[in-house]
Design a protein around this nucleic acid. Structure first.
Length: 890
DNA sequence: TCCAAGACTTGCCCCTATGTCT
DNA sequence: AGACATAGGGGCAAGTCTTGGA
């Protein structure tokens, strides 16, 4: 149904392959020069053989075809007048200015009592541990066990008595305190299973009592290691279990390609200003009904009766901030959300955008690489690819044979059979590498004016691509830049790493745009889009097939701050909140099924338990041409070790080949079931051989409409935050409250196993801090001596320069000692925090798992300026959550 | 019922701008 | 002013889940 965008035949394109001869206007982007180290710590300087160097920074400016301003009319309804370039379109503002909240929301259950959980062990990569030990300061409850698996750190344990560190430990509570009180039956339900565990099942185990910690989802992290496992062939055995995913809620998705169609000749765009939030005229009745249902469900929690109490300082801050953002963007924004997408169909009514921008064409640098010590001339196309490789000489990819092999296979095709270069081993890319380094250096040396000019220039070229007009509202586009060519950098042991990711051309790209909107002009003269669609059941603006895996797509979407994304974000969290109402029965159900006779049923029960307790991902099947990683449903026998009496040790590579290592005490029936599932299987066989994510999710949907495995992650993350914040926040300084927040954030990150590589300079930084602390301690020693002397009427000691110190009365000295002590304490605290978080990534959970309303409400309740927690982008992304009632609880 | 296409979310790392310290 | 540290944002890979169609 798609319509041809342009009438021009493609044959003209002189786009890329033909770069050499290419008259084209492009320059390659410098993406290729970006180096990513797989493992920075191991990074070795370029291997002898290939020495390369880098490519050009192709950041050139792409000649952007003249773009005519869209003939968009500004909707009369725009909430705020836009400024300047805003073209009078209303742009959704990230924040609503007046932060008002309602008092309506229910005080919410504080029944969520959960205790901390976990223990586990991780193999977090480190290099710093040494230092840590020497410092002797890194531990305190739960915070400093860097070498432990992330999850392990959650435990309250750690007998460290905070060597001298007086960190106001924010909330030792939720994590380390054992929740002894036995709440009413259901009180715990909303809490991650793990938290309840001990009570319910008091797993004997000689192991440490499950105690507090283990109750929440255990997580943990580990080093980033890759390993390869083979996929065992699974013989899916079906189970009658799931009747066509009953869930009324689910389903109902897109009616495929809507009106793409032929007639699309760009007409004048007429953006309808009208519809916004509540207009569902365009929604099919069936959906409206659904929508209505949804609303009912949500009503109690979501609706915020606007009341006027604006809350103190924080609110002001928010206002201020929002203004700032608006000012920056120069656009006004509407504050209303789009109508709930309900389940689906129509995502927009009118859509106008400018398409995508292409990376600049490759500009040959002419630097010759060596083959067997002699210079070799390459064509621009050959040189381009050689350069992609050369710039990666100092990355870990050079240690990977697969990378080199794949690169060589693709490059040699370009070289041709009879080329001088016959193998990679005799290649020396160093000259190119060196050239690239020089280019980088030059760029660095540019004056700030030059840099600024470049930046402005780029902005000017890109401006028009940055925005889309959705239903009359100006929204930011996310990734409007087409990915430049480069070598594929797969993570872990990806079988395709090193392959050439070819240049994307207009004829690879499908555009999706409103029927009445003008089709974006193809920026490459003589070329045309592959197709132009008008599908309003989807949100993408453009896509192309991934050159590495043509079966997959790369989409251009709106930015995270857009209403469309905000809406679905909100729905995600609402679904997770809904799980609260079902969690008890779900847990009861799967507990019962631990001993079911039907194996599939038992596997579903155990898998659900693991997903709930450990926040594991679902674990879809993967192809052989992907890195060998697993999730819950794809765990291999070898990934789980049974340790009597009832502990399970998990060790596997999860998403992004991040290692998950965690030893956890489980309920006896689970322990036994795992043993049974392993029985008679080989190490590499699937642990859950009767299960896959489709079956699992179908089952979950029977328990709660719309429930899928990943909802548990959101649920557990958010509820953990909510609980820790509400239990851990005390009266006091804002800084202390922020610590409480960070602490909770960290815990969630650990639960979700969100890791990051330890920075290269971490060790050095720690040593430096230690040194400074030692120096200050020496200062104190001297001061004490002076104090002593001063009290006896003697003059103070001479300073390091041998000069006599003056004016040191005992009072002055006392004061100095106190000040220095404060300094030391702060440094020690900082150091501890740093050590603590060196391998934990806090951002991921903040962006994806923590319901922002929890944060906003907490900020309001405790007078913490929201921008202390959310940066500019998060404020924009979570605009929809800003007016939440301060009493909101997840 | 199964598979694969399709759409969207999640996740880690790199680079750059900015802030802080010396 | 230069060195260093850090936050933020972009980039893009890698997941999850739904749906259409055989």
């Amino acid at each position: 149904m798609a319509v041809e965008a342009s009438t021009k035949p493609n044959f003209v394109n002189n786009f890329d392959d033909d770069d050499e001869d290419g008259p084209v206007v492009f320059k390659r982007s410098n993406a290729a020069s970006r180096q990513k180290q797989v493992n920075p710590e191991v990074r070795k300087p370029s291997p002898s053989t290939f020495n390369g160097q880098n490519s050009n920074a192709q950041k050139g400016k792409t000649p952007v075809p003249s773009s005519k301003p869209l003939p968009v009319k500004s909707p009369p309804v725009s909430l705020k007048p836009s400024t300047s370039s805003a073209k009078a379109l209303p742009v959704r503002s990230p924040l609503k200015s007046p932060v008002v909240y309602s008092k309506a929301s229910s005080p919410l259950d504080d029944r969520l009592k959960r205790s901390p959980q976990q223990n586990a062990s991780i193999a977090v990569k480190e290099e710093v541990s040494l230092i840590k030990d020497s410092n002797g300061l890194i531990d305190d409850d739960e915070d400093s066990e860097d070498d432990k698996p992330l999850s392990a750190r959650l435990k309250g344990n750690t007998n460290n008595a905070n060597k001298g560190i007086k960190t106001p430990k924010p909330d030792a509570s939720p994590v380390s305190k054992v929740n002894v009180k036995s709440p009413p039956e259901d009180s715990d339900d909303e809490v991650p299973l793990s938290s309840r565990f001990p009570k319910s099942y008091g797993g004997t185990s000689g192991g440490k009592p499950f105690g507090s910690d283990e109750k929440k989802p255990l997580a943990n992290g580990g080093s980033i290691i890759k390993d390869k496992q083979q996929k065992s062939t699974v013989v899916p055995v079906k189970r009658p279990l799931d009747k066509a995913s009953s869930s009324a809620l689910s389903s109902a998705k897109k009616p495929k390609v809507s009106g793409t169609t032929t007639e699309m000749k760009a007409k004048q765009v007429t953006v309808k200003p009208e519809q916004k939030a509540d207009d569902d005229d365009h929604i099919p009745i069936a959906q409206r009904i659904k929508k209505a249902n949804t609303l009912v469900i949500k009503s109690s929690t979501t609706k915020t009766t606007k009341v006027t109490k604006s809350f103190s300082s924080s609110s002001k801050q928010i206002n201020k901030n929002s203004k700032k953002i608006m000012k920056n963007s120069k656009y006004s924004k509407s504050t209303k959300m789009l109508p709930s997408s309900g389940d689906g169909q129509k995502k927009w009514t009118t859509l106008v955008h400018s398409g995508v921008i292409f990376p600049p064409r490759y500009t040959p640098h002419g630097v010759k690489m060596l083959y067997k010590g002699k210079e070799v001339g390459l064509t621009p196309a050959q040189e381009e690819v050689a350069t992609m490789f050369a710039v990666m000489l100092d990355t870990d990819y050079m240690q990977k044979d697969k990378f080199k092999e794949n690169f060589w296979n693709d490059w040699r095709k370009l070289l041709g059979k009879n080329h001088v270069i016959q193998n990679l081993d005799n290649c020396d890319f160093k000259p190119i590498y060196n050239w690239h380094q020089e280019q980088k250096e030059k760029k660095k040396q540019m004056t700030s004016e030059e840099k600024k000019a470049l930046k402005e220039d780029k902005l000017k070229q890109e401006e028009k691509y940055m925005w889309a007009i959705v239903d009359g509202v100006k929204e930011k586009v996310g990734n409007f830049r087409v990915e430049p060519p480069g070598l594929f950098r797969g993570r872990g042991e990806h079988p395709k790493m090193g392959k050439l990711k070819k240049r994307i051309r207009p004829c690879d790209i499908t555009i999706n745009i409103g029927k009445d909107a003008p089709v974006p002009e193809c920026p490459i003269p003589g070329e045309s889009w592959k197709e132009v669609k008008h599908d309003n059941t989807v949100t993408w603006l453009a896509f192309w097939n991934d050159p590495i895996n043509p079966k997959e797509f790369k989409y251009v979407f709106l930015a995270a701050s857009s209403s469309l994304k905000g809406q679905s974000d909100k729905e995600k969290y609402e679904k997770a909140r809904k799980l609260k109402d079902y969690i008890q029965s779900i847990r009861t159900a799967y507990t019962k099924d631990f001993t079911a006779k039907d194996v599939t049923r038992r596997q579903i029960a155990v898998a659900t338990y693991l997903i709930d307790k450990l926040a594991l991902r679902a674990g879809n099947e993967k192809d052989d041409d992907e890195a060998d990683t697993v999730g819950c449903c794809t765990l291999k026998v070898s990934n789980v070790e049974c340790i009597p009496p009832n502990n399970l040790k998990f060790d596997f590579l999860g998403k992004d080949s991040i290692q998950y290592v965690n030893t956890v005490e489980v309920e006896l029936p689970v322990y036994k079931a795992i043993g049974q599932f392993q029985g008679g299987k080989k190490q590499n066989d699937d642990l859950f051989d009767k299960l896959d994510t489709a079956k699992l999710n179908a089952h979950l949907k029977e328990l709660m409409p719309g429930l899928t495995a990943k909802v548990f992650r959101t649920f557990n993350a958010s509820i953990t935050l909510d609980e820790m914040l509400s239990k851990g926040t005390k009266q006091g300084e804002v800084a202390e409250k922020i610590l409480v927040y960070q602490h909770a954030n960290k815990k969630v990150a650990i639960i979700c196993n969100h890791q990051r590589t330890v920075s290269k300079s971490h060790g050095a930084q720690m040593s430096k801090l230690t040194e400074k602390i030692e120096e200050l301690k020496d200062v104190i020693k001297d001061l004490k001596i002076d104090l002593d002397r001063a009290k006896k009427g003697k003059p103070p000691l001479k300073d390091s320069d041998g000069k006599q110190k003056r004016g040191l009365t005992p009072e002055v000295i006392d004061k100095k000692i106190a000040q220095t002590n404060v300094k030391i304490e702060k440094m020690e605290r900082d150091m501890k925090t740093k050590e603590d978080l060196k391998s934990v990534a806090l951002g991921t959970s903040k962006i994806n798992y923590l319901d922002p309303r929890i944060t906003v409400a907490w900020c309001k309740r405790h007078d913490v300026p929201i921008e202390k927690i959310f940066n500019k982008s998060l404020l924009a992304k979570f605009a929809w959550a800003m007016d939440v009632d301060p009493e909101f609880r997840f």
